[in-house]
């Protein structure tokens, strides 16, 4: 089955971010296709490489990056949500005059159209978070 996953919550605050990751990993292991993972609202905070959890805790960001590398996942952060919350890639830094970037490996920033396209192109849109 072809899936698009929407993640609406940030890491560590809400289990939805963990559930989304665990679901994605399990779906891929079962041979399902993930067309796209779209991070919206506070979910964009799953895509900053500056995240530094305690060493004995899971790394909510790095494990997405690793999963993306292994399966060539398309991890998309909503641009409007990312701008509001200070998640920046090279293009956004240049456009908005920021002196740093913090987007994590394997993620990209794009528009809401990517969410709609994902929902339309996939068999299921699976949403995590309130």
């Amino acid at each position: 089955m072809k899936l698009t996953i929407q993640v609406n919550e940030g890491p560590y605050q809400h289990q939805a971010a963990d559930s989304a990751y665990n679901f994605a990993k399990a779906a891929l292991a079962k041979g399902h296709e993930i067309f796209r993972v779209f991070f919206y609202h506070d979910g964009v905070n799953n895509g900053t490489r500056l995240t530094t959890p305690p060493q004995d805790d899971r790394h909510a960001v790095d494990r997405w990056s690793e999963l993306a590398r292994e399966y060539e996942l398309d991890l998309v952060l909503c641009v409007a949500a990312a701008q509001r919350r200070g998640i920046v890639d090279d293009g956004e830094a240049e456009r908005n005059g920021k002196d740093a970037t913090n987007i994590a490996d394997g993620f990209r920033i794009s528009g809401l159209g990517q969410l709609i396209e994902g929902a339309v192109q996939s068999d299921r849109l699976v949403v995590f978070g309130d």
Binding site: A80, G111, L112, G113, L115, I116, E117, V120
Partner: peptide, 9 residues
Amino acid sequence: EVVLIGAAF
């Protein structure tokens, strides 16, 4: 915002 952008689809 999603509704307005989604309208293009």
